[in-house]
């Protein structure tokens, strides 16, 4: 990005009504991917000058315990529902989860899910990091996921959505080829990179804040049924518009939210609807980026 400039220069403007036609495999109109955030939040993280990790003095028992619910039970509840309806996960991973609870990572790996990095912990923020520190967390992410799963990560969702001006160029330099941090489109888009030797190309794949379960339940205060209906409406619209040029729908999840007993039933009905519709290409983030890259070059 252009550091300090009013327009950070992340992408070019492309009107929605004049896009090249993207076609998804099997002639499907909308690529649907599910992004479970498998996270570890520290109970007593170090202070950061720009962001307070917890609302209450440590231990923030409800904040920490709520997130721990994912790793003790709701991951399996969520994952079983996804598997039952044929949705693989593309995992936004706090890579230290590989050390803390390898059982969770092994379960996702055994289901054939893809992993990308969501930083080391969701309680360590990238703001103000030196280039050396930022390189360290990228290298740590690549190494840790490779050791735990054999996979080489291709994507990045910044830890707790915290960035520096150099993040996108750095991850591309390390060979990652998609970012989940930009929310400007319903189609995959090229990210503009610093033109330098060895710099790679980076695709922005639509993730979503708006239909993220965290927004659904804690920003828009939806019930489980209202959130499921929201997913269906999001799907119906993107599936219809995707006939013109393939769209992308992401369902970003946190097991401690969607995997609560009062929400998982309605969520299962939404997945059942999307899987039965026939217009969805249910895929991983990497598969979607590959299919797009093949068509745009």
């Amino acid at each position: 990005m252009r550091e300090g400039a009013p327009d950070p220069g992340l992408y070019d403007y492309h009107p929605y009504n004049a896009r090249p036609k993207i076609t998804w495999p099997g002639g499907k109109s909308v690529a649907v991917w599910v992004a479970p955030n498998l996270e570890y939040y520290e109970i007593d993280p170090p202070a950061h000058p720009k962001r307070k990790p917890w609302a209450r003095p440590h231990p923030d028992v409800v904040g920490y315990g709520h997130r721990d619910h994912s790793n003790r039970l709701s991951h399996w509840r969520m994952a079983d529902v996804m598997t039952r309806h044929g949705f693989p996960g593309s995992v936004s991973l706090s890579v230290a989860l590989c050390q803390h609870h390898p059982e969770v990572v092994a379960d996702a790996d055994a289901r054939g899910w893809e992993f990308f990095s969501h930083g080391i912990y969701n309680t360590r923020y990238a703001y103000e990091m030196s280039e050396a520190q930022e390189r360290a967390i990228i290298e740590d992410s690549i190494r840790t996921v490779r050791e735990a799963t054999g996979q080489t990560i291709r994507g990045w969702l910044a830890p707790a959505l915290t960035h520096t001006p150099r993040t996108l160029d750095l991850i591309a330099e390390y060979g990652l080829d998609y970012t989940c941090d930009l929310y400007h489109d319903d189609q995959v888009q090229e990210v503009k990179m610093a033109t330098k030797e060895g710099g790679g190309r980076l695709a922005s794949i639509p993730y979503s804040l708006e239909v993220n379960d965290h927004y659904g339940f804690f920003v828009y205060n939806m019930s489980g049924r209202e959130y499921a209906e929201t997913l269906i409406r999001q799907f119906e619209r993107l599936a219809a518009e995707g006939e013109r040029s393939g769209t992308v729908m992401c369902i970003p999840l946190h097991a401690y939210l969607i995997g609560q007993a009062h929400r998982i039933g309605p969520f299962e009905e939404a997945l059942r609807h999307i899987a039965a519709d026939g217009r969805a290409w249910i895929a991983t983030a990497g598969e979607i980026v590959d299919a797009w890259r093949e068509q745009v070059g």
């Binding site: 109970i43 170090p46 990091m129």
Partner: peptide, 20 residues
Amino acid sequence: MSVLPDSYTQYSKRREGYDH
């Protein structure tokens, strides 16, 4: 020069099980 100390990217409780 970073305003974050080196310790910010060091993780003394990164181990199997919890950080408590």
